[in-house]
């Protein structure tokens, strides 16, 4: 069983103006949604949880994964995965290289693991392809699978569907949320899209 992602009295300030204040326990398999217009500081919240907060902001509060305080850990040791607006497949690696990039270093049978992952997203045989030749939907699926292969303990979603067209958006939404639920990961979604929030189905706050 996975741990919960716990945001304890998190407050982020910019020049003494409070941008975000959150106090929330996100259970495994749940998606907690933070809604707000652009510039409201929701991406800043993600940066703080992921470990990239720019020093211009002042943040207080703690972030826990189960009984582990990760507030001061470097980003790579937090076990917090991130899905961006863009798929951001590394252009210098093949599709398989991208999937393998996130695999924990001592994974046995990496190649087999990658091949199975490709099958899971209906892209068997795409391993050697140049990521630039994939369609938008295929790229998003590879990005999601790369995230899952890195075995995160929690996932952050930064408006991951906003750049997709309507039909693709619905498809990706279903895929992402079902995969996260299946993996039992606590997730934090920031978005300005009402439909995203509904599909996520978890607790919600608006900024």
């Amino acid at each position: 069983m996975n741990d919960s992602l716990i945001l304890k009295q998190v407050r982020i300030q910019l020049e003494n103006r409070c941008l975000v204040g959150v106090d929330q326990i996100i259970s495994p398999g749940d998606v907690f949604t933070v809604m707000g217009p652009s510039g409201s500081g929701k991406s800043t919240l993600l940066a703080y949880v992921a470990g990239f907060l720019s020093p211009t902001f002042q943040a207080e509060g703690e972030i826990w994964l189960g009984n582990r305080d990760i507030t001061h850990l470097p980003a790579e040791s937090r076990g917090v995965g991130l899905l961006f607006q863009d798929p951001l497949l590394f252009p210098h690696l093949s599709v398989a290289g991208n999937l393998g990039f996130g695999l924990p270093q001592h994974t046995p049978n990496k190649a087999e693991c990658i091949e199975r992952a490709l099958e899971q997203i209906n892209l068997s045989g795409f391993g050697n392809r140049d990521p630039a030749t994939l369609s938008g939907g295929q790229k998003s699926r590879v990005a999601l699978m790369r995230l899952l292969l890195s075995k995160p303990c929690a996932v952050l979603l930064d408006e991951p569907f906003s750049k997709l067209d309507t039909t693709l958006r619905r498809e990706m939404r279903d895929l992402v949320f079902s995969q996260l639920r299946e993996a039992g990961l606590p997730s934090l979604l920031v978005t300005h899209d009402q439909e995203d929030a509904q599909a996520a189905g978890g607790p919600l706050i608006e900024l």
């Binding site: 992921a50 790579e76 040791s77 995965g81 991130l82 990039f101 996130g102 890195s150 952050l156």
Partner: peptide, 10 residues
């Protein structure tokens, strides 16, 4: 940021 959230060191 992406690379590090995938668990890869600086």
């Amino acid at each position: 940021q992406l690379s590090r959230t995938l668990g890869v060191s600086r």
